[in-house]
Design a protein around this nucleic acid. Sequence first.
DNA 1: CGTGCAGTTGAGCAAATTCAACGCTTGTGG
DNA 2: CCACAAGCGTTGAATTTGCTCAACTGCACG
Lengths: 228, 228
Amino acid sequence: MLVHALDLREVSPQIGSAAFASTASPSPPPGPFEIMGSLIAYGRNEEIYGEGEAADFLYRVKSGCVRTCRVLKDGRRQIASFSLPGDVFGLTPGEEHTSSAEASVPSEVIAVKGSTLRIRAGVDPALAILLMGLAIAELQRTQDHALLLIKSAQERVATFLLDLAKREASNIEVRLPMSRQEIADYLGLTIETVSRTLTLLENTAAISLPTSRRVILCNRPSLSKMNV
Amino acid sequence: MLVHALDLREVSPQIGSAAFASTASPSPPPGPFEIMGSLIAYGRNEEIYGEGEAADFLYRVKSGCVRTCRVLKDGRRQIASFSLPGDVFGLTPGEEHTSSAEASVPSEVIAVKGSTLRIRAGVDPALAILLMGLAIAELQRTQDHALLLIKSAQERVATFLLDLAKREASNIEVRLPMSRQEIADYLGLTIETVSRTLTLLENTAAISLPTSRRVILCNRPSLSKMNV
DNA sequence: CGTGCAGTTGAGCAAATTCAACGCTTGTGG
DNA sequence: CCACAAGCGTTGAATTTGCTCAACTGCACG
């Protein structure tokens, strides 16, 4: 049930590379992204890449929040992931992006050219294994997302909040870097159902909503009970 | 929107390895699976591996149909994939299986020990890249599955039938190697809704159901219209 | 010729969606 | 500094979709 797309912290221990080990620290030492990539800033709702475009870059979020989306012919949108600082996104099956990526809020990302990575991966087995780890981690998250989509609305929202909470410094307050519409498109619900479910959780004292973008988890056990 | 878990046909062209190139032919020449693996037969509903077990093997379906499942605490089951002959399954994020695998019908699979593959992948960059391709292909299918789960019941069933049809020799008749319950758990619907939707499609002359396990696609355009 | 399982069908119900109105911020211009 | 518009979120009522519960059918197998 993960909200973030790719987090190098999770794969680096497996691959025995120290390069990413301290991604979580406030100022991580330079890794492949810092060395080979360039920093780009995007405004709210600005497109980073579009569906069908050539997949030439791999990105790492430095600040903000990036969503990846797929859109059905009739306009229904599914948000596949939210990537938070430290997460990697842009890994795509094949040569073309099957999803688009946009900044949910003003965001900075570091972009590494895919061909650069590919060339180095051919030489450097550790990098090849790192890329494999990214793909595997992304697979895990996508599986969890699919599993989320068979749950009830309450369960989806509870799971979502608990996932976000894992990423927060504070483990009681969650800041939502996305709109209700984005949450709805991620959870496979309508904006009204998301709103109603949040107020329901507030009425049952599971959470509190000081502002629409801040959630206080008052009663974690009751949320966890919904996190099947 | 793929039903099969992993199909080497799709990854081999990208990786430039000839070993798997003719997987689709009636009697494929020996590849890693034939050389390094052993053939095992499973009966209907027999477990191949369970959730939480060590992920030591990679499997390729020789005959039959294998489902991979995840189960929520309260017993709700999601089928993540159906693997048909030629497909690979068992690739798992991490050391433990996050899903179980069972034979939907009596099936033969070829198992390759993961450690064997890993050892060879360290030496053989082509094999490492092949494994990467498997992960990426699996990722694509899982994304498509997640997208399926935001569609209407009719759309899900139509998509499912069209996906299965792609795998059939005949492109008008589809054989279903799984029960209604399995289809329901794959599509995130109930068995009753699947049954009702199939009869609805039959009443609208989109399909015909000579037996419950055989579907004739009478009107592909009308099915495709639902395949958003 | 029963028995049991898989699938279908029906009726009523519950959950989530749709459509619509309302309220709260936020930013802008007078 | 206030008025007002625009965007976002919330709430309500009616509707729809798919689910639950239950009965029934057909088929395979002993």
